[in-house]
Design a protein around this nucleic acid. Structure first.
Lengths: 319, 319
DNA sequence: CTGTTAGCGCATTCAA
DNA sequence: TTGAATGCGCTAACAG
């Protein structure tokens, strides 16, 4: 591997001179044009890459961001990661899968942070209180969470929950919908939205028949459907995947969507358009959200603000 | 931050002694029990974490693996990453998103490799010839690819394509299927399987009516369906997502699945069970594959073998 | 059983 | 305009 020393030796110069040239401080300090050129040429010829271990040991910025997530199976995770990676590449950042805090464990492995000198943290997904907050907070690393949280440790990017609920409620209102049933799970994002849905639906004169809580499994959804006392005009699901399972359960019980019941989703997963019936849902401006998240976390002076984004209603067959 | 020096100073010991204890070589060398305890206690108290920049500068193993992918939108990507991360955590490895080689660019950003001293590379997804091979190969880093490739640079984990095709063909044969139409795209994995499908179907006396090539878009699938000269007994799709789009297109044309045509998928995406009709497909043993991949890439003596796994046929409604 | 020293690759201060 | 020396945190060879 080419090092500054190998270049210096070859050219009969001192290491410090080579260092100045290579770190771009040559002009500023006043190095001879010719010397600069020699060093640069030799560096190129030998394929010199600065050793980041040495840099980071010296306290130079590592341009490394940590990504942690709650749920690798989130249908959006791949897309979010792809977007993050695209921006990271442009800006010469490296992304590290710094850890995850799974449902069952409540811990986060922070060793990767220390190990690679992470400069910022991007949290993908919604969550509640973070037990690892304390450890983490010791090293004041800027962070952004993409999703809802009850325990903000840095900046926060999320959807405007009130606006989202209003979008849906007024859409349903225009369709002369009179009654609704809610299907949500216990996740924070579901609960956040549910509160807003109840408010918005009520304001739009839509009667909430029932409020079903179920985990995401198809069996739990199906039994939720079976136990319905009355079929509403519309079922509002916490997300598209749940909507999908609801429609599937209804199908198995021979209830037609949207003829007998309408179903409203949330997320606009890639699949939503091809489902039968295609899903009416809310489409979050993912790219803008990610872009903003990256800007926030990589900016030198990060604020702890919460930025809310507005989704777009996609009207399709299911509602 | 706690360093060995800070511990040594506090305890009035030498740095090297602290180093020996902390790197677990104390016993071996013969350090006083009491000293060991003192150091360990102080390390714990001050939350000591070894600085990896320093370690890697000294040439100590970094326990860092790079992950690159072809396609972040692959529905399996999140799951694969989750599995990889779980194993990595157990074994104290760190995962870096080392780069991606997108369809449009044909390049790989290798700076992350150099930057973090990556010890192994995991390639997620199928691909063809790698143009970055040459750069990469200079530093002989062990690598594993999970997926098909024409240009093996290390170990290779994939499905047994011949066996998979036979599984499907004999299943269809038992159902008295007589004719089939193929829907595949230009990706390597599709093409690999298609060849095997043609062979296996023919051997099972199933007549291949047409062989449609289309990119994944719903419009291209739909126009492919419209242009069909004749409706076969079964349509075999390159993957579940394509199967989904095929069924959707058939639905829009008022053709019933499986009554009028059967549709066979591939992958068993999480969605397959809830689709209407639920997808009959092949389920790859993802966890075992990932586990094996990790074992291979993190083992000191990696072989360049290709390991083939057998999927399981999941019979549901669509075929 | 423990301490001293050197050096990994680099940026920087001080000196020339 | 250039070079020598220092130190970031750590391990290992060598010396007590």
């Amino acid at each position: 591997m080419a090092t500054q020393k190998s270049i210096a030796d070859k050219l009969g110069l001192s290491i410090s001179l080579v260092s100045r040239v290579l770190s771009g401080k040559a002009k500023e300090i006043g190095v001879a044009e010719e010397t600069i050129k020699k060093v640069l040429d030799e560096a190129k010829r030998t394929n010199y890459t600065p050793n980041s271990a040495a840099l980071s040991l010296r306290g130079v910025k590592t341009h490394t961001l940590g990504v942690i997530t709650y749920d690798f199976e989130d249908p959006y995770f791949g897309i979010i990661l792809g977007e993050l990676h695209k921006i990271a590449k442009q800006r010469k950042f490296t992304l590290i899968l710094a850890g995850s805090y799974q449902r069952d464990e409540d811990t986060l492995d922070l060793s990767a942070f220390a190990k690679h000198n992470i400069e910022g943290l991007i949290i993908v997904g919604s969550d509640r209180k973070k037990d690892w907050y304390e450890n983490f907070n010791q090293k004041s690393i800027p962070s952004v969470q993409i999703g809802f949280t009850t325990d903000k440790i840095g900046a926060n990017i999320c959807l405007d929950e009130s606006l989202s609920a209003n979008l849906i409620a007024s859409y349903l209102h225009k369709q002369k919908t009179e009654s609704a049933t809610l299907f949500f799970n216990h996740s924070l994002s579901h609960e956040t939205f549910k509160t807003q849905h109840i408010k918005a639906l009520t304001e739009n004169g839509i009667n909430i028949l029932e409020d079903v809580i179920c985990d995401g499994s198809i069996s739990s959804v199906k039994s939720g459907i079976k136990q319905l006392k009355q079929l509403p005009d519309v079922i509002i699901a916490g997300d598209d995947i749940m909507a999908t399972k609801i429609i599937r359960s209804l199908h198995e019980l021979n209830i037609k969507v949207p003829e007998d019941v309408k179903v409203f989703g949330f997320d606009n997963i890639s699949h939503a358009r091809n489902f039968i019936p295609s899903l009416t849902t809310l489409n979050p401006p993912i790219k803008e959200m990610i872009q903003t998240a990256f800007d926030l976390v990589s900016s030198p002076s990060i604020s702890k603000e919460t930025l809310r984004f507005t989704p777009e209603l996609i009207s399709r067959e299911s509602a």
